[in-house]
């Protein structure tokens, strides 16, 4: 008569003990593949398949916490990413939902595009500090939509030098991703692994958001119960390469939301029209 409650009790206590052990894992310890798959069912494999440009040959778990991975990327970028001279960063965001091509903010007429390319020229000095920068967001048709510029005066005029901290190398590593995953759950639900693509080693960062109730985003039919994202970094240089966001719908199906690709080029000089912006004709 009393046997069933005992079995339930023991099962619950075993489960609780398992979770305590899992959650008490110290930073730097390896999460087993099985544990990661239990926490994040099915998503990892499907994301790898979806990222056409990444063909993993071998995957290995990275035995580091989110904070440690963040620091490792910063260190690698400091040594290898920027060089003195002009650097051009091109970010291309492709959105796969059915929402409108753009939104106009009624208060100021500003246009927020659905798909966009952001080209940013950065002038890096010998100390690897960005001393001037020009950034333009364009639609996929090439229309310039939003420009920003900054300079400490060592190139062209002095233009809002107080904003230069936001233009430094770390900004281009998308480290806000790590800050948010640490804030969300200390980075415990994120997984990090190394994969090989040709001669390159890439860091794969997987993270998932679980919502307390289903909700909606523009251009997606059906309610969303969670979202997951996979980002890839060049593990040698720390460069952010690409990421994809996916929504998990109530029926268990996945819908790709977007794909962001980042390219870094080392250019002898920006085009003349960009150089002209630093002479002061640009409208902020």
């Amino acid at each position: 008569m009393y046997r069933k409650p005992y079995i339930v009790l023991i099962a619950l206590l075993v489960l609780a003990a398992g979770f305590i052990l899992l959650m008490a894992q110290k930073p730097g310890e390896a999460k087993s593949e099985a544990a990661a798959q239990t926490a994040l069912p099915t998503a990892v494999g499907e994301v790898i398949q979806a990222a056409q440009s990444v063909t993993p040959v071998m995957a290995a778990e990275v035995e580091m916490s989110a904070a440690q991975v963040r620091e490792a990327l910063v260190e690698r970028a400091k040594q290898h990413l920027f060089k003195p001279g002009w650097v051009m960063v091109r970010e291309t965001l492709t959105n796969f939902t059915n929402r409108e091509e753009y939104v106009v903010v009624p208060m100021n007429g500003q246009i927020i595009p659905k798909n966009w390319v952001r080209e940013t020229w950065l002038l890096v000095n010998e100390d690897l500090k960005v001393v001037a920068g020009y950034s333009v967001v364009k639609s996929f048709k090439g229309e310039p939509l939003l420009e920003t510029i900054v300079s400490d005066g060592s190139f062209g005029k002095m233009i809002q030098p107080e904003n230069l901290p936001g233009w430094q190398e770390e900004h281009w590593l998308y480290l806000d991703l790590f800050e948010r995953m640490i804030e969300y759950d200390g980075g415990k639900s994120a997984t990090f692994s190394l994969i090989e693509q040709g001669a390159k080693r890439l860091l794969r960062v997987f993270s998932q958001d679980f919502y307390p109730s289903a909700g909606y985003t523009e251009g997606v039919e059906g309610a969303i119960v969670s979202s997951f994202s996979t980002s890839y970094y060049d593990w040698e240089t720390g460069q952010f390469l690409l990421s994809e966001d996916w929504a998990v719908l109530t029926d268990g199906s996945h819908k790709q939301i977007n794909r962001l690709e980042v390219e870094v080029e080392y250019s002898p000089a920006p085009p003349a029209e960009v150089v002209a912006r630093f002479t002061g004709e640009i409208k902020q």
């Binding site: 965001l93 979202s227 994202s229």
Partner: peptide, 15 residues
């Protein structure tokens, strides 16, 4: 409700 994906809507350079 609205679910917003951060990477779709970045802030302009420096902000």
């Amino acid at each position: 409700s609205k679910y917003v994906y951060y990477k779709d809507y970045p802030c302009p350079g420096g902000s």
